[in-house]
């Protein structure tokens, strides 16, 4: 054996080669991992025109749960759902639909949700009216025919929750044609986001659209309390009798925002119209 020389032993060579291979693999794999993670941060964004099936978990959870098997697509009796294909700007293989092309027909037995093996479509959804796929919004009042005073109301008429998710509101027409305007108003608390209104809208590009809830809705501050709601909940005013406001000015003075403290002006107009008439006739006398 050549123990004394500084030649590396075969065990050392094996160990070196092993370490070299491990580092090479780790380097390559971490570069690939970075690439996939970067790509994923772009490729996992859901465009606003793509709507998830009913019962879909919040998007972040959905992307963790969806197996991309397409059983929901196969069970959809109206061929509404499709799987995101390669080169489409959606998370690859996940189900979606486009309201303007094929809206959700809101099957009562919700076969897509029943078919989902993983729970990405939540089986807690048993009444399709509780689905929240998105929220219908009147996005373009300038082009909506109803706002122009024409009788259209197609979106209202196709709405599966007619009179709840879309209501018609009568307004007087400022053009003064003598006919009222029937304005479709959307109500987010009942809208399922099925997209029937967007599909049916007769303008060349839909004036009413279904948007993802986070785009469609605002949110009042969580600390907001609506006075009249609180009053009703409490069954009466929470602060007792509202006291009459007192202004304590020096005698014969008043406060004006621009002028500051002023001598109290006397109202030039009397409550009795006859007085001013008489005054004018007095002034006109020579």
């Amino acid at each position: 054996m050549t123990e004394q020389t500084r030649q590396p032993t075969s065990a050392e060579i094996t160990r070196r080669r092993f370490l070299h291979n491990v580092l090479k693999a780790a380097g390559g794999v971490s570069v690939l991992g970075m690439g996939v993670a970067l790509y994923g941060s772009q490729a996992q964004a859901l465009p606003a025109w793509a709507i998830r099936p009913p019962g879909a978990l919040p998007e972040e959870d959905f992307l963790a749960a969806c197996l991309r098997c397409g059983l929901c697509v196969r069970e959809c009796p109206y061929d509404t759902l499709r799987l995101a294909d390669l080169l489409e700007p959606l998370p690859l293989g996940t189900p979606y639909f486009v309201a303007r092309l094929t809206p959700c027909e809101m099957c009562e037995d919700i076969p897509c949700v029943v078919a989902c093996p993983s729970g990405a479509l939540d089986k807690a959804l048993t009444n399709i009216d509780d689905a929240r796929m998105g929220t219908a919004v009147m996005v373009d009042q300038e082009n909506c025919l109803a706002y122009r005073g024409l009788r259209c109301e197609v979106c209202y008429n196709v709405c599966p929750l007619q009179g709840e998710a879309i209501k018609l509101e009568m307004q007087s027409n400022p053009r003064g044609t003598g006919h009222a305007r029937f304005i479709p108003m959307t109500y987010a608390d009942t809208c399922t986001g099925c997209g029937k209104c967007e599909e049916a809208c007769i303008t060349e590009k839909a004036s009413i659209k279904v948007l993802p809830e986070q785009l469609a809705r605002g949110q009042a501050g969580s600390h907001y309390r609506i006075g009249w709601d609180e009053k009703e909940k409490a069954g009466g005013s929470l602060i007792g009798e509202e006291p009459q406001h007192q202004y304590n000015m020096p005698e014969g003075m008043q406060y004006d925002f621009d002028e500051g403290l002023q001598p109290q002006s006397t109202n030039p107009f009397s409550g009795n119209p006859l007085e001013s008439l008489n005054r004018r006739s007095e002034e006109s006398q020579p």
């Binding site: 996939v36 993670a37 790509y39 994923g40 996992q44 992307l63 963790a64 991309r68 690859l92 293989g93």
Partner: peptide, 15 residues
């Protein structure tokens, strides 16, 4: 598996 754990979604299934 690491991508799934860190990303919270099926990142590998994108590719």
């Amino acid at each position: 598996l690491l991508l799934a754990l860190m990303g919270g979604s099926l990142l590998w299934e994108l590719v």
